[in-house]
Computed example of a mutant assay.
Amino acid sequence: MTTYTANPELDLVLERTVDVAPELVWRAWTTPELIKQWFAPKPWSTTACEIDLQPGGRFDTTMRSPEGEEYPSSGCILVAEEGRTLVFTSALGAGFRPQVSEDGFPFTAVVRIEPDGDGTKYTAIAIHADASAKKSHQEMGFHEGWGAALDQLVEVMKAH
């Protein structure tokens, strides 16, 4: 199992226990049609998603603002441990190809899914290259946005 210990100087962490089984959280993160239902915090939406669930595979999404502007993002899956850990980065595109990040700072996301009673201990870590990138991501609303998206994930998966 892939482990990563967050560096408080460089990383942002969202950790919560949610009332959804781990296999449903995994499905929500790895099924493009489900990602489109929860990934962007409302009133934003996710209009496109393409995932190739293997190391080197793509993790591409397009978010739409309430004003209708589209923001495509392409990334690369680094780790896909079935039902437990998903790691992807915006620093690389499919096939581990280095790329310039459209959002101004590349980051790597580590999503850990652990059983906790009938629910899931959910940990999302955004790893940054330096403190200024962390600060930018924090000021963009990392905790609010990722927290709202997690609430939406729970809502969507409780319906499945």
Rank of each mutant, 00 (worst) to 15 (best):
Q138I: 06
L153R: 09
L86P: 09
G57I: 07
T89W: 04
T31I: 06
I77V: 14
K158S: 00
S90W: 10
F96W: 13
Y71E: 10
G104R: 04
G83M: 10
K121R: 15
I77W: 08
W38E: 03
Q138F: 15
V25S: 04
T46V: 09
E139P: 05
N7V: 03
I127V: 14
M1T: 12
A148P: 00
L153S: 09
F107P: 04
K36I: 09
T2M: 14
E50K: 13
E15H: 12
T62V: 10
G95V: 11
T89K: 06
V87S: 04
T2V: 11
T85A: 13
E9G: 08
V156W: 05
G119I: 02
P8H: 03
P55F: 03
W146I: 03
V25P: 00
P98R: 08
A21N: 14
A129E: 13
D60A: 12
A131V: 13
S136N: 14
D103M: 11
S45P: 02
G104S: 08
S45I: 09
E23P: 15
G119V: 01
F59T: 01
P98S: 05
L12W: 02
D19A: 15
P22N: 07
N7C: 04
T108E: 10
Q152I: 02
R84I: 02
P41K: 01
W44M: 10
M1I: 05
P8N: 10
R84H: 10
I77T: 05
M157E: 02
D103H: 11
V111E: 03
A159F: 12
F142H: 01
Q152E: 06
A94S: 10
D130L: 09
V156E: 06
P106M: 12
W38L: 06
E33C: 06
Y71L: 09
N7S: 10
M157W: 00
R16T: 00
G104T: 11
M1F: 05
Q99I: 12
G56K: 11
A129P: 04
V79M: 09
T85K: 08
W38V: 07
L14C: 02
E139I: 06
E102V: 11
V20H: 07
T17E: 11
A21L: 07
L24T: 04
L34C: 08
S65Y: 08
G95A: 08
E70W: 04
T89Q: 06
M157Q: 07
D60Y: 09
L92H: 06
T46Q: 11
T123R: 11
I127R: 06
K36W: 11
Q99H: 02
P72I: 02
E9A: 15
T3D: 13
P32K: 01
V156N: 03
M1Q: 04
P22I: 08
P98N: 12
S45Y: 06
A48S: 11
G117W: 09
T61S: 11
G145F: 06
F105G: 07
T2H: 12
Y122W: 12
R64F: 12
P32R: 02
R112G: 14
D11A: 05
L34N: 08
A149D: 01
S74W: 13
A94Q: 14
T31D: 07
V20G: 02
G119L: 04
A40F: 08
T17L: 03
H143R: 11
M157C: 02
Y122T: 05
D103R: 05
D19M: 09
L53C: 07
E23Y: 13
